[in-house]
């Protein structure tokens, strides 16, 4: 369970989050949508403590994230970064198995490699890529390696920042199914950021729309189409004219 109350964040004079309230129940798949630059990535970085909110509280399972033991806290999370953020000094499989090669989850090397290759297969990558370096992969392949790394240690809570951007429609379908599977089969709690409305429908239990630094609308995915909210409607149908300005 993740709960955000009145979270504010500014960078210099630029106010990005202006009081975000969000509730994600355990074992649910929440999808966050919203215009480019509205602070979606900043929002999940706040939950992970990578960005310090200026104001407001964030709770995970009823515990304030600022008071949690940092190592134990982070051990429960997996995160796919928008830019994949692969370590370019390590090979693909060493990236995927990063957690399994050191620290509390350390396993023998051959076993870690096996897990990595299995996770790569789940994101639609062949074992041949395992020994390549990230720089040798295409953007979409890097993204999928990032996804494999995020799920490698089977975390309870997973954040996906635009998992399907840059992928072809078939691969997007594979990744959508994978995220759905992780939530339903492994019982993980997921927050996914996406611009892709077909992904939203495939992945989400609940949807929250970020606009103007706040959650403009939140509710079950089934109610998204008849919300009656002009902002959400404009976003869902991708119309250029409406209450959301096209120049931001």
């Amino acid at each position: 369970m993740i709960e955000l109350r009145d979270v504010h964040k500014a960078f210099g004079s630029k106010q990005v989050l202006r009081g975000v309230d969000l509730f994600v129940p355990k074992g649910e798949s929440m999808v966050v949508i919203g215009g480019s630059g509205t602070g979606k990535s900043v929002l999940i970085k706040c939950i992970l403590g990578l960005v310090q909110p200026d104001r407001g509280t964030i709770l995970v399972d009823g515990q304030y994230v600022t008071q949690a033991d940092r190592d134990a806290f982070l051990a429960r999370f997996g995160m796919l970064f928008q830019g994949a953020a692969l370590f370019d000094s390590l090979t693909v499989w060493q990236n995927v198995a990063f957690r399994l090669l050191r620290g509390s989850l350390k396993r023998p090397k051959p076993e870690a490699r096996e897990v990595a290759i299995e996770k790569l297969r789940r994101v639609g990558l062949t074992p041949e890529v395992a020994d390549l370096y990230p720089a040798e992969l295409s953007g979409g392949m890097q993204k999928r390696v990032g996804l494999a790394r995020a799920i490698a240690a089977e975390p309870e809570i997973i954040f996906f920042d635009e998992p399907t951007t840059g992928l072809d429609p078939i691969m997007s379908g594979v990744i959508n199914d994978l995220i759905r599977e992780i939530v339903t089969e492994m019982g993980a709690t997921a927050i996914t950021i996406t611009h892709d409305m077909s992904s939203v429908r495939a992945i989400a239990d609940d949807v929250a729309m970020l606009h103007g630094g706040k959650v403009r609308w939140a509710g079950p995915v089934g109610q998204m189409d008849e919300s009656g909210d002009p902002y959400l409607d404009q976003f869902v149908h991708g119309r250029a004219d409406g209450p959301i300005e096209a120049v931001r």
Partner: peptide, 15 residues
């Protein structure tokens, strides 16, 4: 590494 969020990624991987 910092600019490409690799440092953030390290943190999320408990390192």
């Amino acid at each position: 590494m910092k600019v490409t969020e690799q440092i953030d990624a390290l943190v999320t991987l408990s390192t």
